[in-house]
Amino acid sequence: MEIDIMRLAKLAKLSIPEEKVEEFRKKMEDIIQMVEKLPDLDTQGSLVDPTNTMELRKDEVQPSFPRDEMLQNAPYTAAGCILIPKVVD
């Protein structure tokens, strides 16, 4: 099985140094080989599980957190916001 490491890295926002690509590919392939040990199973249908359900929350307001606490770990801030490199959408 040939794994497109570069495509995966791009999706995951990782960069693998040129000299490590082969090593990564080899290790990944070993892992995939191990992980491929799955029996034939019917994978039709949804993964919804009515035997294990959750309760929903009431629509009641809880206090928000102070802004300075929420931004205390941000590397760069300005004007009460987190500062990021310029983006255009």
Partner: peptide, 9 residues
């Protein structure tokens, strides 16, 4: 003016 974008959550 800040050379970037500001994120408001």
């Amino acid at each position: 003016s800040l050379g970037g974008s500001l994120a408001d959550y």
